[in-house]
Amino acid sequence: MSEWTDRRPLSPHLQVWRWHPTMLTSILHRVTGAANYVALLGVVVWLMAAAAGPQAYATVQGLLGHPLVWIVLLGAVLGLSLHIASGVRHLVWDFLNIGWSPRAANLGSWMILGGGVVMTALVALHAFGMGGR
């Protein structure tokens, strides 16, 4: 029932397209949105541990001290930063109705990528200044 039975050729898919900035940010917006979904579940676990008391919190804090977990956290912040930057662009597109030309859209995509990295660096600096958790 669910098998694809249509014998006509499929339209070209992902692998035939040259990567370009707007394609990258479009895909990243969805991927980072899904990543943020998982990250929020992590935030809830962290809050629950804090509510459960010092012992439960210490367990979570022990995890947070691991360098591999730092990389995951940095990835989570990068995902959030890129999603916010790309989200702002979507709001600009939808409500101001500007930035639709290929030139502007490509430029916007590069700004999103750069802005996301800068935002992540600022958060990392902030965390480092606070004593790295």
Partner: peptide, 13 residues
């Protein structure tokens, strides 16, 4: 939330 939570977490539980 991110900035505020990082600041809070630096003080432990």
């Amino acid at each position: 939330f991110v900035l505020s939570a990082i600041r809070a977490a630096s003080g432990g539980h």
